[in-house]
Simulated assay, not measured.
Amino acid sequence: MLVKWIRCGVIDRAGFERGQRKWAGLLGEPGFRGQGGGWSRGQPGVAHLFSIWDTRAYHDAFMAGSHDRLAAAQEGTYESLGVKLFEHRLDVKVGFRARFADTDVLRLMHCKVRPDRTEHFTLMQEKVWNPAMAGSPGMLRGVFAQGPDGDFLVLSMWDTATERAKYREGPVARLSERADLEADVLAVAGDVVDVVQVWTV
């Protein structure tokens, strides 16, 4: 399974949102599982989108085919666009589904992991972080995925922002120490995304 993360620095919010609805055209694309996203809480004007595909080959075929036609609706509405691709490694909590309709908030963590620590980092995700998130009320499901050059993404879906805040305020520091996170990572960046349901495909 391929997880595509798209980060947009938006300059025309209304135009961007109108164009975002055009991505409903993804339905019926071979290998497409679902797409959703919304606005960053911490970075004004930033939108995050996550598109899930069965395989890289299906995604690449879409990029060579229908993509440009769908993307044209948002031309001129953003000043920056970043795209990263990740391969699924682990589910968080239950079998991951590309479903955003029941989700209020997304939490993303983007980690740059030291080359000699990727196995340990993955093991700690499985043994420490995943059980902690899975036991948190309000946490629906998530995915742990790996990109090139030590890039990792943890995407978790929450039914309310209140429940996610409780998890953040609770065990995160203790879990970081237990997982020896500082020894594994070169950099960690995160964001909280308020899901816009009309963007869900």
Rank of each mutant, 00 (worst) to 15 (best):
C111Y: 15
A179N: 01
G170N: 00
G135R: 05
R69L: 08
E75H: 11
L153M: 14
R99D: 14
A47G: 14
C8S: 13
R21H: 12
R141Q: 09
S40D: 12
F100P: 05
M157K: 09
C111K: 13
A101C: 14
C8R: 07
A134F: 09
Q43P: 03
E87A: 08
S40Q: 07
W39F: 14
P171G: 02
R99L: 15
W5L: 10
K84G: 15
L90C: 07
R141S: 11
V196D: 15
V154S: 14
D180H: 05
A57C: 01
T160N: 05
V188H: 02
V195K: 07
T103V: 15
L123M: 08
D191Q: 09
A165T: 15
R21C: 14
W158F: 04
V195Q: 09
D159S: 01
T200R: 09
E17H: 07
E29R: 04
M133T: 13
G37C: 04
F32S: 02
V94S: 09
D159T: 01
G45W: 10
V128D: 05
V105S: 02
D184E: 07
D102M: 11
I11T: 15
R33Y: 00
L181S: 11
E169L: 03
D149E: 10
E126R: 11
E182D: 14
V172I: 05
M1E: 01
R18E: 14
D54F: 00
G25E: 11
H88F: 00
D104R: 07
V94W: 06
V195M: 13
G135D: 12
F16Y: 13
F32Y: 04
L181C: 08
L70Q: 00
T200I: 12
L175E: 03
T103M: 13
D151K: 09
A101W: 10
D12A: 10
V128F: 07
D151H: 14
W39A: 09
W199A: 10
V154T: 15
G19I: 05
H59N: 07
G34N: 03
F144W: 10
T77D: 07
Q35T: 08
V195C: 14
R168V: 10
R141N: 09
Q35C: 11
H88K: 01
D68F: 09
P137F: 10
K22M: 15
P148T: 02
L81E: 14
F100V: 03
V3C: 02
E126T: 13
W199K: 05
K127D: 11
L155D: 06
A134Q: 02
V172P: 02
L140Q: 06
